[in-house]
Design a protein around this nucleic acid. Structure first.
Ligand SMILES: [Mn+2]
Ligand SMILES: [Mn+2]
Ligand SMILES: [Zn+2]
Ligand SMILES: [Zn+2]
Lengths: 137, 137
DNA sequence: ATAACAAATGCACTTCCATTGCATTGGTTT
DNA sequence: AAACCAATGCAATGGAAGTGCATTTGTTAT
């Protein structure tokens, strides 16, 4: 099991208290989080710092951004050794219209999508909306 | 060939000059448009009117909303007799990262997506990012 | 035709989120 | 210790979405 320090180090990010806390927060959350979620969890910290921390994480492929159609950007931890930028690696995202949670379905990969002649597909974003397992039970 | 008046009438929307103009604008555009696009095309008109017009069109299934991941909502005309709300009717959307245009690929339907047990899929949004036919040529 | 009513439009204002500039703090390296 | 660069904090900005209310316009009833 890798420690948080090891994760950050392996991605060439300086280890700071703030970054460790935010990383830990993301690990503990099983769903995608908004910037406001993080903000609420760390009232003491400045919003900008949180924003830039998550942006740094994004650049370094520690988290990936999710646009679930709510208009608010969400973030979730990448899988270990994921290649976010490679199309075939991408998984589905599920947005529950009942509890408003957004979940990475990492086991469910996006099927091969064909586009018309002349179009070049580089990336696919797929969001399923509906009722999550917690809410449907 | 249906006239614009007939389209609006069939959807039970009052025919006004503004609505005719905006509908015409949408027909002539072959790509999805933002509210700003419409705003720029009709400098004289108030933004709110344009906003509410497009919302009315959306409610009446004249246009559908597209979230292509740019953070700005886009709109495009629905196909004739489309059932936007029915999952199996939904088509792909293509967002060109070069020219920033978003295109309805109405011929390319979204494949059947399976979700884990307990999850109920009600709707699927699929956006392909890449280079469009105009830009790749 | 006129009055009464309802819908559409225009203007002002608000809210929310994302993003940036700049000063300050803190950690590393020589 | 000095120099340096990255990280943080504070303040402000920008963009888009949305709402309240007054006014105008169109429709319907008398
Ligand atoms: Mn994910
Ligand atoms: Mn479309
Ligand atoms: Zn739920
Ligand atoms: Zn293009």
């Amino acid at each position: 099991m890798e420690t948080i320090e090891q994760v950050l180090e392996s991605k060439n990010i300086r280890i700071t208290a703030m970054r460790m806390l935010i990383y830990k927060f993301l690990v503990e959350k099983e769903v995608a989080v908004t910037l406001s979620d993080i903000e609420n969890a760390f009232e003491k910290a400045d919003r900008t710092t949180l924003y830039r921390t998550i942006k740094t994480f994004e650049e370094k492929d520690i988290v990936h951004q999710i646009d679930d159609g709510t208009g608010i950007t969400k973030y979730a931890l990448c899988e270990k050794d994921c290649n976010c930028e490679i199309e075939t690696d991408l998984h589905l995202h599920f947005h529950c219209t009942n509890c408003n949670k957004t979940i990475c379905l990492t086991e469910n990969k996006i099927p091969k999508i064909t586009v018309p002649d002349g179009f070049i597909s580089e990336n696919v974003n797929l969001v399923v909306k509906g009722i999550c397992d917690k809410c449907s039970g």
